[in-house]
Design a protein around this nucleic acid. Sequence first.
DNA 1: GTGTGTGGCATACCAACGGTATGTCGCTTG
DNA 2: CAAGCGACATACCGTTGGTATGCCACACAC
Lengths: 202, 202
Amino acid sequence: MSRATEQPRRVEYSESTRAALVDSAVELFTERGYARASLDEITGRARVTKGALYHHFGGKRALFEAAFEEVEIGVVARLADVMPGERDPWEELRAGLEAFLRVCLEPSFQRIVAQEGPVVLGYQRWYDLGERYTFGLVRGSVQRLVHTGRIEESVSVDVLARVIFGGLSSGAATIAGSDDPNRTSVEVGEALERLLRGLRDG
Amino acid sequence: MSRATEQPRRVEYSESTRAALVDSAVELFTERGYARASLDEITGRARVTKGALYHHFGGKRALFEAAFEEVEIGVVARLADVMPGERDPWEELRAGLEAFLRVCLEPSFQRIVAQEGPVVLGYQRWYDLGERYTFGLVRGSVQRLVHTGRIEESVSVDVLARVIFGGLSSGAATIAGSDDPNRTSVEVGEALERLLRGLRDG
DNA sequence: GTGTGTGGCATACCAACGGTATGTCGCTTG
DNA sequence: CAAGCGACATACCGTTGGTATGCCACACAC
């Protein structure tokens, strides 16, 4: 039996170690934030040492970036389900917003992606990564609205999507910080819908 | 000549030391960010030692909070000039937005208030401080629109203001990160105006 | 003027952290 | 089977935020 196509045990072990590191990184960065989450605790929870960490990642920032991407990948997977990209663009955007508001209630997304992402990674890196994931979905939705003539072409798609994304993020943070998240969630939805009305027609 | 109403020299010295610490804190937090700005460098630039710092402030966070407030106070002073609070609420909002976008181009506001504020101070503390300063202006402006019947009362003033504020901040960050800030500034202005149109009438 | 605080710092020090240099062990490969 | 390499563990280092203590000018009581 040839082993050429198989994967050696060591590779599985290695991938498992890496995954454990990323998972406990997501947990601890969410719980304590980037600065207060120590590498010793992260590696301890993953039952390895710093040697393993620095074997797999370049440093704390690189580990954060990996955690960032893991969170984003999970979010995009769920959002993509709700936005088939075929129905009415307005309905699609609305459905996407609703799902996004739910995502923004999750602590990991709040802390790692929305809050500390731009600070730890630097704005430019954060922008580039976001483009590939969550923000890319918003941007795509807005772009479809423009291309199908639902919004005047005079507006910059990129900038408009950025502003909407900011409103979404802020709304999400408001929900998370509220003492009655469910009620606030409804209010945020209303406020967003009211704002998006300004985009209709031309 | 009585000295009862005068201020002893020592008090002047003390206030001067405190001010110097806050000033160099604003500078270095802006340049390097909270984590990478060391207390030794901050105190060094202010030509004192850590002893002075810990005499005036409870720690690094407290110093950041003082720096935060200094930046906010300066911003509010300039914004208050443009928003007299008497003319047409819509015109007032527009003027305020324009001035705010200019403010958001300043690195100190970007870094200390918008980016690291919620991370370092915690969301709740950041919210409370923002309420007193910049965000309070946006909120007041929106509230006036609602009270004068320009916007339906069904919407939560607080939440709507939060979402708008988020859009503003995001727009400002987009401007700052752009390679052609002037052009992007115009685009952000257009996108915001388009969005705010949705609030008109009822 | 001489003791006695007291405010306003400076100095010396500590624990914890991110990061590096080196050692070790087992698997693979020639 | 020896040589090499991948996947870590261990030991250590420099820097950092924070603390404990010391010092000195000045105010005030007597």
